[in-house]
């Protein structure tokens, strides 16, 4: 019997009074990789923001358990400290805050929550440099303000670096391949794959099948009109690449 990390039951959510998620259910167990594929505008990003607790995304009914705890009662920072992580589609710029400063605050907030001693500056710098090196992130980039002037590829590398340092139990990749060339996508996919183990789980949200060649899912779900309309194994992704989403959109 596998242990569930995330259990979503009949979730409904809205943004600015518009119902986007309509009766969404999904259980993700330890060690699994799930992919959610669907047409643009189906509400895929909304789902990722609801999971992370972004203000303005309102859950109207249903429930979500994260490691058996009620996720919906947690603030965004509590979710992150419990091990929720979102690789964002468009990571925001933070002028004036160097990458290292930002990461140090984040890693120590998470460690404190887990009753681990906070890292001192030396330990932290060593960790960041080691992990950064694996992702082709230079020391110079670590000194720059978060995402300011970063290319699309650099932004995604920084997201992956954060994942490598924060070691989440559950990570969501929201359109992680958007705006990336194949090489950059591979770096990100390798970085994410390196973090996979039997105790954590991954949810890949994507429009195209391409990323799934590098991060191979155990389950693929088709998401249309706010809920899952079809589930299958990894072969479903290939099938969708040929048939497109039209058949599911019509089902409305």
């Amino acid at each position: 019997m596998k242990t569930p990390i995330l259990e979503i039951e009949d979730l409904c959510a809205r943004v600015a009074d518009k119902e986007i998620i309509k009766g969404f259910s999904l259980t993700i167990n330890e060690g699994e990789v799930h992919a959610i594929m669907g047409p643009n505008g189906a509400g895929k990003s909304t789902l990722s923001y609801v999971l992370c607790g972004k203000p303005g995304y309102e859950v109207t009914s249903g429930k979500i358990l994260f490691k058996g705890k009620n996720l919906l009662r947690m603030t965004p920072e509590e979710r992150a400290r419990e091990g929720m992580f979102l690789i964002m589609q468009y990571p925001v710029d933070i002028p004036g805050v160097p990458v290292t400063t930002f990461l140090k605050h984040a890693v120590n907030a998470v460690r404190k929550h887990q009753n681990l001693p906070e890292l001192d500056t030396m330990e932290f710098i060593k960790l960041v440099r080691e992990e950064g090196k694996k992702l082709g992130i230079s020391n110079d980039m670590l000194k720059r303000p978060v995402n300011v002037g970063f290319s699309g590829g650099e932004k995604k590398r920084l997201e992956t670096l954060q994942m490598a340092i924060l070691k989440p139990r559950f990570a969501i990749l929201d359109e992680a391949d958007s705006g990336l060339d194949i090489d950059a996508m591979k770096v990100v996919a390798d970085g994410v794959n390196a973090e996979r183990n039997e105790h954590n789980a991954l949810l890949v949200i994507t429009h195209y099948q391409r990323l799934l060649n590098y991060i191979v899912p155990d389950f693929v779900h088709v998401f249309a009109d706010g809920h899952i309309v079809k589930s299958g194994g990894k072969e479903l992704a290939t099938e969708l690449e040929e048939t497109g989403y039209a058949q599911f959109v019509k089902e409305k």
Binding site: K54, T75, A80, R81, P91, F102, A109
Partner: peptide, 14 residues
């Protein structure tokens, strides 16, 4: 708000 959320989503308190 976007910057605040980004930081909170990484575990940093509000």
């Amino acid at each position: 708000e976007e910057q605040l959320f980004y930081m909170r989503a990484r575990g940093i308190g509000e």
